[in-house]
Design a protein around this nucleic acid. Sequence first.
DNA 1: CTGAAAGCGCTAACAA
DNA 2: TTGTTAGCGCTTTCAG
Lengths: 322, 322
Amino acid sequence: MKRITLKDIAKKVGVSQMTVSRVLNNRPDVNPQTRDRIQEIVSEMGYVPNTNARALKGAKTNRIGIVVSDIRNPFYSELVGDLEDIAGEYGLSVIVTDTNKRLETEVSAIRVMELNSVDYMILAPEGYKTEHLDLLYEKGFEFLSFGVHFEDKNYPEVYTDDYEGGKSVGSYFAELGVKKPLLIMGNPRKLNTIDRESGFLAGFEESGGDTSGVNIEHLSVNVELSEQYFLEKKEHITFDSVFCYNDLMAMGAISAFRKMGIQPGKDIPLIGYDDVFYAKVMGLTTVRIPIKEMIRKSVEIINEGKNEKVQFKTQLIIRETA
Amino acid sequence: MKRITLKDIAKKVGVSQMTVSRVLNNRPDVNPQTRDRIQEIVSEMGYVPNTNARALKGAKTNRIGIVVSDIRNPFYSELVGDLEDIAGEYGLSVIVTDTNKRLETEVSAIRVMELNSVDYMILAPEGYKTEHLDLLYEKGFEFLSFGVHFEDKNYPEVYTDDYEGGKSVGSYFAELGVKKPLLIMGNPRKLNTIDRESGFLAGFEESGGDTSGVNIEHLSVNVELSEQYFLEKKEHITFDSVFCYNDLMAMGAISAFRKMGIQPGKDIPLIGYDDVFYAKVMGLTTVRIPIKEMIRKSVEIINEGKNEKVQFKTQLIIRETA
DNA sequence: CTGAAAGCGCTAACAA
DNA sequence: TTGTTAGCGCTTTCAG
């Protein structure tokens, strides 16, 4: 499988490699006729530049990496899908790595990115440790933190206001007249958890709810664990409404409820978070995170080399489950 | 951001680059003491080999590419997730590309793989055109076709027996005593469609069903289209059971049924295909494709440079919807 | 067991 | 406007 190289083109056209290189890189200083001839041969021979050689010279690889915690979570697969679409518009390739929700692998995921010399990384980190981000920053890697906000760090970020997101659910529950909401949250050290939770409490109280009736449970973010939690509570249900950390955990609740003969929405209001595609399919009330817009902004930041922190707004989407 | 190179290590240890290279590539012909010293310095300095330089020399990049038609489809995101996990065990990086279900982009996806000089590609093709596979084959690329079987082509494949899969559903429906099954299938030129469909008919007939009662509809593979189809039929339901091309389309049916007040399983048996994770969450009866085993086999084929066609068996998983 | 030299494909810097 | 030279980091080949 011999690939066509610059040299092959140069020989065929009868010019130097350099002239071909100039044409390929759209440099202005080439005779228009030579340019045309070269372009013709290039497409005729189906030349594809060797990114490795380019990278070796220190040029851009046009590869961007994304590190997500679990590609199987539709939130992330939608994220990756959107990134693929938008990066494609800019002629960028995407390299994906999954950390399986573990921090150690987050470090090795970053190593994969280094191995493949991506120009830029998008990190959707687990959210409460920043050592590896700091390390990356010190090493001079270009990256952007997606979905989590660290006030005191000065790397670029694209994230949502989780406090407001939680608040919208708290208020809505209070307006519904709910007395004993159960919050199924994630790791209590995650900033996302903290924000959604405290936002909820603030919103609930502000709209007239009594926060002493609120119960909070912290689980690993996982459909099965969430389902199991509810199944175990079967006999002693002490809540009259449920707010889950994300749609995945809400799906666990739906699954358990179906087995328990509880109809979400009719019997017990249930709200998730993220607004993944399946939330719509299942009629799940949830808090929408505008992924596509956020990714578009991210690629823009990457492309223009900006260093900004951009916050997006969430939106409560009311469907059948609440 | 200066990266540590072989030269840096060599200088520090006081040997030639070559010796360091030998150690890094686990060559036997190095003095054990020298080896130890080098390994120590390597990890001390946090050396990461430059894959680009390696690739330039024609060595392996340890990158494998996967081209899927829609990363947002949980079938594919699970596929990618499993591939990441298993490839990771082998020290391989994964490059993902999404074709948005269009063939043109399937060609450009392959170009991305070429650009990134992957050692091997896994193609989960759209399934009825083979030109680009043939092209790839002629060009000498190493790849494997995942999920689709072309009898007369001689590239490696890992696929399932869709005819048998469809048959198991046909038989089951016949045993259920169903009279007018509706099949919501995909593009009628896709081999997967053809096999699932003809398998169904064969199974239905074999188990005593009357195939003249069977209705077949071909739609683009898409949740919304499927949902819409059922919503439009609201007033004139002419079927007493439904078999969908995949779980995604079955979810569209579930969504529509919920709005129509139909309970799948109770009122109308509904069966999907793939057994994506959410099928379990939703209690959907479906045909299981053993993705993880198939991916493991694929990586094995890749790793050992085999050229075989391996067929996996599907399994009907009975849950609440049928 | 170890090293020196050459070259993979490309582009930056300089020369013509 | 075009060409020449050098070198990115690595590994292969051939000599020690």
